[in-house]
Design a protein around this nucleic acid. Structure first.
Lengths: 150, 150
DNA sequence: ACTTTCGTGCAATAAAATTGCAAATGACCG
DNA sequence: CGGTCATTTGCAATTTTATTGCACGAAAGT
């Protein structure tokens, strides 16, 4: 992982649709060397995968919400059980157990209020061990990236 | 946006490194038709971009934290100002203004505690109009996807 | 100084994307 | 229904891109 690898990672995190020849030129390497480096980054698992990022609005998912959850019983197995349940929801795009007052934080991508209503009904029913939850609606997205500084 | 387009979007959100020929076969189309559909999805902006997703651990960013922020003065311009400042931080990968008690929520990807220390120093100094903030460390990631249901 | 290891560039080859064109499909209207 | 227009499709040719073998060169260890 030298300077060239870092540069490649930065470039690929921004736009992975570039051709190998382009990348090679930018980092100042021959296409073959460049390709071999990228392949190695895949093989060693530094690059997890290549994905298409959709425009949420154009894909019909306009609402975003963040829910912080406090459980009744806080044991490890209870938190795990709650997360397992949350993960199954397609609208849940991020689910974390966290330190501090709250036990879990969920990030949702929703079509409309009805979808949120149905989801909260499933996740926060009586039997689900949830003591309290706070729903915050995203008003403005200042930044949203998958990019990790390297 | 018919059934085939949706299927393509699902496939591309999971793995955009597949060849056009593979995709074409999965959705039951000729390579040329398939390619034209994908290009159209790009042109219409449904597909925003193609990116490489890194393994955070292998890229040297092991810590994740979520900070909820309450501002002193809540006006639109103050929130905007705070978000603008937060966005500039490379460790901040998501920054939202939200409804409810808290004004903003930040998602951080960190190397170590020192980085967090330095960042909080910059964002939550006296002059930054922040009344209170709560830092929750991510203990376990149940789910983390860029995939939007289509 | 010698060997080993690793990364590099070049050139040939294989694979994939892209395009033009004619046929097929399907929605709309008299 | 029958006809027209717009759109989408598949095929085949072409272009572009990825991939591989190989020999050379730099750096590290002995």
């Amino acid at each position: 992982m030298d300077k060239i690898d870092s540069k490649l990672l930065r470039l690929l995190q921004q736009d992975a649709s570039r051709t190998n020849a382009e990348l090679a030129e930018v980092v100042g390497l021959s296409p073959s060397s460049c390709l071999r480096r990228i392949r190695r980054l895949h093989e060693t698992g530094v690059i997890d995968r290549i994905v298409a990022v959709l425009n949420p609005t154009k894909a019909g998912r306009t609402m975003k919400a963040i829910i912080t959850v406090e459980l009744e019983r806080h044991g490890e197995q209870y938190i795990r059980r709650f997360l397992d349940m949350a993960e199954k929801e397609p609208a849940v795009i991020q689910a974390y157990s966290v330190s501090g007052e709250t036990d879990a934080i969920l990030m949702l991508r929703l079509k409309d209020m009805d979808e949120l209503d149905a989801l909260t009904e499933r996740l926060f029913r009586e039997e689900t061990n949830v003591a309290r939850y706070y729903t915050a609606f995203v008003i403005r997205t200042g930044k949203e990236t998958t990019e990790i500084p390297v």
